Amino acid sequence: MVGLFALIVLFALAFLVPLIDPWDQPTRDFTAFLESPSARHWYGTSQTGADLFAQVLRGMQKSLVIGLFAAVVATGLAASVGAAAGYFGGWTDRLLMWGVDLLLVLPAFLVLALLSPSLRDRGWLLFALLLALFQWMVTGRTVRNTTRSLREREYVRAARYLGVPSYRIILRHIVPAMAPLLIADATVNLGSAIVGEAALSYVGFGIQPPETSLGTLIADGSSSFLTTPWLFLFPALTLVAIVLSATLVGDGLRDALDPQSTP
């Protein structure tokens, strides 16, 4: 509950506060260059006079949107591929699991770093899809194993004997039965995707100026950490707060929806 409350607060800060903040992200205060945190600029200012609080909020928006989109896509891929492999079995199972194994052995960070520069001018959507592509495999295997047991349940057999198409059985009976697992997995994927985006942006392979994300802000502030620590600390602490909140929500959901997993 604490993680959920913190996550809601962070989302509200990112998307509602900029509507009333006098120091929006493009605005510069030419009377305050590299000013430390104060009542006028809560997080201080950058070397160009930009209000760091406004920049962090703008970076949170991009990081949260990318993380949420990647988490939903990754969970959807895990549910679709895992359910299809477990339900149909045979060559379908072998082919899909071969693809899962291939993605598992690929160095995800290296592949993302190589492909991201070529997609940089095409917007963040393709970048988020790339992040999602390397986040679903372990859950996909879990969904596949669970589906293999669910397909032998009486209600699934009855639907199959009545001639209900396979895709309807999967959508109406198989996937809803695994909803607790998928919901918990989506929250964990949210934190993982945000960390992945921040890491790639930090080393110059993700979101880059003029766009802003928490990763780019951390990268900009790390070079002057000893002299102007607020440029690094506030974006970094915000990133930690988001990931920690998402992780707490995911762990809490798993404990609540699967009591046997609680020690």
Rank of each mutant, 00 (worst) to 15 (best):
W91F: 13
V111S: 05
G99Y: 15
A14F: 09
P107Q: 14
T147V: 05
S118M: 09
L16P: 01
Y155S: 01
V195C: 01
A79Y: 00
V203C: 07
Y161Q: 07
T187Q: 04
L96G: 07
L119G: 06
L95G: 08
S80V: 11
L104C: 10
L7Q: 03
R172E: 09
L114K: 10
G82R: 03
V73N: 08
R254Y: 15
R94N: 11
D93I: 04
G204V: 03
V203F: 14
P107L: 12
D220H: 13
V100S: 13
L4A: 15
W23K: 00
M97N: 15
P165W: 02
V249Y: 06
A70E: 03
S245V: 00
G163F: 06
S192Y: 14
Y161N: 05
A12G: 12
P235E: 05
G90A: 14
M137V: 08
L16A: 08
G204R: 06
W98D: 00
I169F: 01
L4N: 11
V72M: 13
T262E: 13
P209H: 02
T228W: 12
F205C: 11
T228S: 08
V73H: 08
F11I: 02
Q55K: 12
A79P: 00
V56H: 07
G123C: 10
A158Y: 06
R151D: 01
V188Q: 06
P176Y: 01
P235K: 03
A179F: 14
L190G: 07
L130A: 10
S149W: 04
W230K: 02
I218H: 07
D220F: 15
S201L: 04
M178I: 03
Q25A: 15
T147G: 10
